[in-house]
Design a protein around this nucleic acid. Structure first.
Length: 963
RNA sequence: GCCGGUGUGGCGGAACUGGCAGACGCGCCGGAUUCAAAAUCCGGUUCCCCUUCAAAGGGAGUGUGGGUUCGAUUCCCUCCACCGGCACCA
């Protein structure tokens, strides 16, 4: 007989809600217990999508819930909140199509997803639930933006400081203004000044500068600033597109309209100022090494040199960045990005037409196309530069394999030692000069030698790199370049400043006002929030004209919202909105104190929940970390962007004294995806996966036309035994979701098997950090386990408890304690699949018993409770316990019961398993060896052989080497 | 092209620090129970060879090929496949 767990689940979910069982009181509240350590367990909060959850979503939520419940039983004050990252495109697009306000859609979706999450029995403190779209929340998102806007990065202290202090420092002449409008510390010498971006040649006095020039200097130092940035503009849709929304052909994904790259004035955040700290502080957090590596690669710190090449016949120099200044003598041509500022000026008349044509072509190409092009393209400008090392006369080309966004947008090409330059040189028959030694059989005319070697062909009258190793040569040439004033050592980053504005409605409005003379003013903090204006039409202004002005949705807001009178001047509000990242950058802070109206987070609450009380936060690791969230779980797709942006905001808040820790997330865990089979028909269209059946032996052949990445059409043939109705379909495998039509709803699983079975199955699938396939049929395994647990405890006929107060026998008691250890260890390692396996084994031991001894029953229910909380609570109550299991202590194990009196040793002969011996646990090596040699099978193997060596590994095995 | 990850029975996976490969579950096979089915319970299940059967035994085996080691799923190198990310990063 199958027990129906659903009524138990409803009962306990109601009881938990009623008793506010999972509410985490803040310091100062009457129920707060200061004697306990804290533990902050956080999920990456979801976007409230209209189709609701599929079983892939709760994977991480179930894991964190188990951890939160486990930590409560371990005596921690656990903060375990949930909320919604609810600004974003789908709600806006729905609004455009149906005229429904995004807030309406969003609230409906949030309600539905909350219902789905609650049904899983997740132990969130729902009183802390928030949405990034709550006015009371985005008020503080805007406030944080203002902190960035009102700050600058002090290159001496290497931290953010209030912008007023920059003005004071300039007046006091602690800093000077360089000719190009940057600032430089007075303590730096003229030479060093260049290193932070200033041009040689002099300084400006702050006092002598006109006011508007002063203003520009200040604007250029803010952590939030405006800049002209190229965007993918689609006039027909009236909107700016992300790279992923642009096809390889430079058309819009939706509607196939032409897309143009055009510059647009955008808000930028100066994340690059934090490049070093974002890299260095990775050493202070306990994160998976691959994720740290990805962030380090993204920041991309590289040491090299800037080198100036004089352009023949012009006053200009082309400045390049290179990581290999040691190969300077091998630079045989230069390449500028098509967008480089000097291209127009230096292009020879004869080349003008070709250059312009190429630039137009490059502008229309999506970045993806530039990256995937196999054949190098480019055009000669007609101009020449001088290699400062050997005074060689070298041609200047433009090519799209050089990008404006990185370095200086120009390179010196060393075809002998860089394969991309080599490819280009081969295509255009440019000279290849070897300057690093390669093996004798290696010909740099055939391929680039990119490995290390000694300098060769690298000398002029003043400096020689010949015979020097790479590092030495780099140093020597850089010193020489600096002495000639044509180059300097430079640290370069791949990281670029963060483009922070979006031309959308459904996002946080910027708390910024534009004055009549172009002045940019912050909205006063007392006037926050700047609420989104009510609007009815969300349709963007489409146009056929690529040069039409970009109209953001907010530009159609009523003047009563857009226009502000202040001190007799008319100001216009900023009409862009913030990106979806903004709200998710700091929600973990708001969770600490979600209803605080006077501050983004109360200082005491922030300090309590964010600062680690112990070096070992009790998360099963002894790695010291910089505080913050004790466990942050989410998908690896956020490995770089969200986590980097969030760390950046946190550091700014830290510098300004608003938070107490240098890092937001002390420990991070990335869960894998749940994948599932998907099926496509003969047109390549996905069909509903749950309607597909396999017919064994009935093989069908499908031939269809497919398009590969490059857009070429190809015919492909498949053999299959899968059918959708009578239509044969091809099986594929991929991430679960709407697009592949293979989503499985958690509601259906709860309905059929119950929330506890679903929770167990998701955890039992495999290691949390790996991707793994979902197969609904397999859920019966854990479902049977739960039924068996129930039957072991409750008589199915009478409904009475099958638990006895009599003592367990020695063997069962030992088994229990071994299980407690196994489950506890698994919990600490987040290895929930093995924890469940251990519980299944213990439960299987109980099947043959008439009654379960209470000394086994109670610890077992407690071990089970984080994973299957509803059934555990019910059994706990039936065991006569009045209080919820939530704060029942985690069972301890007795180490004495884990020690066996005898030990089994496998015995190998020449590394092959040949026998097994059992010896007393305290036997010494001689005794173990003697027992091994006495074993019948081992002796047979040793017959006629001479023993050369015997290896005894205490507690492990014996290996006898003989021949 | 670059970066990161993963490859273990029919399937999901286990083996935590280099020490008994395949825990646990699914599926499958056999049996018990049942009028029957469902449910439940018991047993078997890496592959190959030897043996009439069984017991027992032998050999191979953790993507491929090599290396280190008394001993490798685990460490190193080569290659292959799949998954994820990407900004040709100079």
């Amino acid at each position: 007989m199958q027990y129906d767990f659903r009524s138990i689940e409803t009962k306990w979910q109601a009881a938990w809600a009623q008793g506010e069982t999972f509410r985490a009181p803040n310091p100062g509240e009457p129920t707060f217990d200061p004697s306990k350590p804290k533990c902050y367990v956080l999920d990456m909060f979801p976007y409230p999508s209209g189709i609701g959850l599929h079983v892939g979503h709760p994977l991480g939520y179930i894991a964190t819930d188990i951890l939160a419940r486990y930590k409560r039983m371990r005596g921690f004050n656990v903060l375990h909140p949930m909320g919604y990252d609810a600004f974003g495109l789908p709600a806006e697009q729905f609004a455009v199509e149906h005229g429904v306000h995004p807030r309406v859609t969003t609230e409906k979706n949030i309600e539905n997803m909350t219902r789905q999450l609650k049904r899983l029995g997740l132990s969130y403190d729902w009183s802390r639930c928030l949405s990034t779209t709550d006015v009371g929340y985005y008020k503080w998102t805007q406030w944080i933006f203002l902190q960035l806007f009102k700050s600058w990065f002090d290159p001496i202290q290497k931290k953010a400081r209030p912008i007023d202090e920059l003005v004071k420092a300039l007046i006091a002449e602690d800093f000077y203004v360089t000719l190009d409008g940057d600032i430089t510390p007075a303590s730096l010498s003229d030479e060093n000044m260049k290193a932070i971006g200033g041009l040689p040649g002099g300084l400006k006095s702050w006092a002598g500068m006109p006011v508007d020039e002063q203003r520009t200097v200040i604007e250029n130092q803010r952590l939030a600033y405006l800049a002209e940035v190229p965007v993918n503009w689609c006039p027909a849709l009236g909107t700016v597109l992300a790279n992923e929304e642009v096809t390889n052909e430079g058309k819009s994904d939706r509607g196939n309209h032409p897309v143009f790259k055009r510059p647009l004035k955008q808000w930028m955040l100066r994340i690059t100022a934090y490049a070093d700290r974002l890299g260095d502080d990775l050493n202070r957090v306990d994160w998976p090494e691959p994720i740290k590596l990805m962030q380090r690669n993204w920041i991309g710190r590289s040491e090299g040199a800037l080198v100036d090449f004089r352009v023949e016949g012009y006053d200009d120099v082309i400045r390049v960045f290179t990581t290999r200044p040691d190969t300077l003598f091998g630079a045989t041509y230069m390449v500028l990005a098509p967008e480089h500022a000097l291209v127009d000026e230096i292009t020879a008349d004869a080349q003008r037409q070709a250059v312009d044509h190429y630039r137009a072509q490059a502008a229309s190409k999506a970045d993806a196309d530039r990256t995937e092009a196999k054949v190098k393209t480019g055009v000669f400008t007609g101009a020449y530069a001088v290699n400062p090392a050997n005074l060689a006369h070298i041609p200047i080309w433009i090519a799209d394999y050089v990008l404006t966004g990185y370095g200086t947008g120009a390179i010196m090409a060393v075809p002998a030692h860089d394969q991309r330059d080599h490819d280009f040189a081969k295509t255009f028959k440019l000279p290849i000069v070897q300057v690093i030694t390669a093996p004798d059989d290696f010909d740099v005319q055939q391929r680039a030698w990119e490995e290390d070697g000694l300098g060769v062909n690298s000398a002029n009258d003043e400096v020689s790199l010949d015979g020097l190793a790479v590092d030495e040569a780099k140093q020597k040439i850089t010193i020489w370049l600096e002495s000639k004033n044509v180059g300097l050592a430079k640290v370069q980053y791949k990281l670029r400043d963060w483009l922070f504005s979006r031309q959308r409605y459904w996002g946080e409005p910027f708390p910024i006002l534009h004055g009549p003379d172009g002045e940019i003013e912050a909205v006063d903090e007392s006037e926050l929030p700047v609420e989104l204006p009510p609007m009815e039409n969300f349709q963007p202004s489409a146009s056929d004209d690529p040069d039409a002005q970009v109209q953001t949705p907010l530009s159609r807001a009523p003047d009563s919202w857009k226009v502000i009178e202040r001190d007799g001047k008319r100001y216009t509000r900023e009409l862009n909105t913030m990106p979806q990242w903004a709200g998710s950058c700091w929600y973990y802070l708001r969770f600490c104190d979600p209803s605080n109206e006077g501050r983004f987070v109360g200082a005491e609450a922030e300090k309590y929940w964010m600062v680690s009380m112990k070096r070992d936060s009790g998360m099963g690791t002894s790695n010291p970390h910089a505080g913050g969230v004790d466990m942050y779980v989410g998908g690896a797709e956020h490995a770089v962007l969200h986590l980097l942006y969030s760390r950046f905001w946190h550091k700014v808040l830290f510098d300004l004294g608003h938070v107490s820790t240098p890092e937001p997330f002390g420990r991070l865990f990335n869960q894998g995806y749940i994948q599932a089979y998907a099926y496509t028909d003969d047109r390549g269209v996905y069909v509903a996966a749950d309607e597909v059946v396999e017919r064994e032996g009935k093989v069908a052949t499908i031939t269809r036309t497919e398009r590969n990445k490059a857009g070429d059409e190809k015919s492909a043939t498949y053999q299959t035994t899968f059918y959708h109705g009578d239509t044969p379909v091809v099986q594929e495998y991929g991430k679960m979701g709407k697009s592949l039509k293979n989503a499985v709803a958690p509601d259906d699983m709860c309905e059929q098997y119950g929330a506890d079975a679903l929770r167990l199955y998701e955890m039992y699938l495999g290691p949390l950090d790996q991707s793994k396939p979902w197969r609904t049929t397999d859920i019966v395994g854990v479902y049977r386990f739960l039924q068996r647990v129930w039957r072991n405890f409750v008589d199915p006929e009478t409904g009475t408890l099958r638990v006895t107060d009599e003592a367990a026998d020695e063997g069962l008691r030992r088994y229990l304690h071994r299980t407690i250890k196994r489950v506890s260890d698994s919990m600490e390692r987040m290895s929930f699949n093995t924890a469940i396996a251990a519980l299944i084994e213990l439960n299987n031991e109980l099947v043959a018993l008439k009654e379960v001894p209470r000394e086994v029953a109670e610890p077992m229910v407690r071990l089970l409770s984080p994973m299957a909380p509803h059934i555990a609570e019910e059994l706990w109550e039936r065991l006569g316990r009045k209080e919820s299991l939530t704060h029942a202590p985690w069972p301890p194990y007795d180490p004495a019961l884990l020690v066996e009196s005898t030990v089994d040793y496998p015995v190998q002969v020449n590394g092959k398993m040949r026998g097994k011996i059992t010896v007393p646990a305290d036997a010494d090596d001689q005794a173990i060896e003697a027992a091994a040699r006495a074993d019948e099978k081992v002796a047979a193997q040793l017959e006629g052989k001479t023993i050369r060596k015997v290896i005894v590994v205490k507690g492990r095995m014996v290996n006898i080497i003989a021949n």
